[in-house]
């Protein structure tokens, strides 16, 4: 599981000293970690690229690292993977016509629900008040 090649090399050189201080995550490490939690490991299918030790997952992480080092943005890297593996590879579905219901449906439902609730409550109170007055 040599996922973090540069770090491994770094440590190999540093083994002569007694203690190795890892000061901070390098910027790319952090980005890789973040991005790979949003990508699907295709072989094992239900874990993320970050959590999988499958060989393909390791290759893809290595590939993503290469792209990051080449200065590609996260969006470009996801696009690169989607081009090859389809939308299935990303756990963050793209926002388009076929996913509009997915992304916006719940919010629209909440708004319509809130309006309906207020109307129903008001109507209900009005009916009950008039009944009260009638009796």
């Amino acid at each position: 599981m040599i996922r973090n090649l540069s770090l491994v090399l770094l440590l190999a050189f540093a083994t002569s000293s007694f203690a190795n201080e890892i000061v901070t995550d390098s910027h790319i490490d952090a980005r890789l970690r973040q991005l790979s939690t949003e990508l699907r490991c295709l072989v094992c299918q239900n874990s993320t690229l970050a959590d999988s030790d499958a060989p393909l997952a390791q290759d893809l992480r290595r590939e993503i690292r290469k792209l990051m080092e080449a200065g590609k943005t996260d969006e470009e890297i996801v696009a690169y993977l989607v081009e090859r593996y389809g939308d299935f590879v990303t756990f963050r579905p793209p926002v388009n016509a076929s996913t509009a219901l997915l992304w916006f449906g719940p919010f629209i439902m909440l708004i319509i629900g809130a309006i309906t609730l207020v109307i129903v409550l008001k109507k209900r109170a009005a009916i009950l008040t008039s009944e009260e007055n009638a009796s």
Partner: peptide, 28 residues
Amino acid sequence: TASVLLGTLYPLLIDAMGMGKISVGPPY
């Protein structure tokens, strides 16, 4: 609950309508 249901079943809905495969996961 509806959002969780929608997210859980959406890959199935898209697939059943022949619109390809998508994944809906933690980011959603």
